[in-house]
Design a protein around this nucleic acid. Structure first.
Length: 106
DNA sequence: CCGCTGACTCGCG
DNA sequence: ACGCGAGCCAGCG
């Protein structure tokens, strides 16, 4: 069952996000069987720093890039990566979730 | 071992 | 439409 840590599940889900699409922390939480614990997802991704995990494709429910103030300055990096994948940012720096949000195929 | 912190989200005014 | 507060769990010192 959950012999692995919740984080392992989170990483696995995040790695499933296809290129050119994004997912919200809450969405990842649900897929990781951690509904309502979006914070855990955010914190998990914060600790990761692993190239195998495309944490850049995980954004907040508002369609904006969220990251720690401590990492201030890396926001442009995430934006660049997402733009490289074909994701368009609005003038306010927001992403159209209706268009880019990842929908796991059954 | 105890307590603080942290990439979030939702509801209310 | 926007801002603020409360709730949630796990890792680190």
């Amino acid at each position: 069952m959950n012999s692995r840590t919740a984080y392992d599940r989170i990483y696995e889900i995040v790695q499933k996000i296809p290129r050119g699409q994004v997912a919200t922390y809450g969405q990842i939480a649900e897929l990781s069987n951690l509904a309502g614990k979006a914070r855990l997802v955010g914190y998990a991704l914060f600790r990761v720093q692993n190239a195998d995990v495309p944490w850049q494709r995980v954004i907040n429910a508002k369609g904006e890039i969220s990251l720690s103030p401590l990492r201030m300055g890396t926001d442009y990096l995430q934006r660049s990566l997402l733009e490289s994948e074909g994701i368009i940012f609005s003038d306010t720096g927001k992403i159209d979730l209706r268009k880019y949000q990842w929908r796991p195929q059954p």
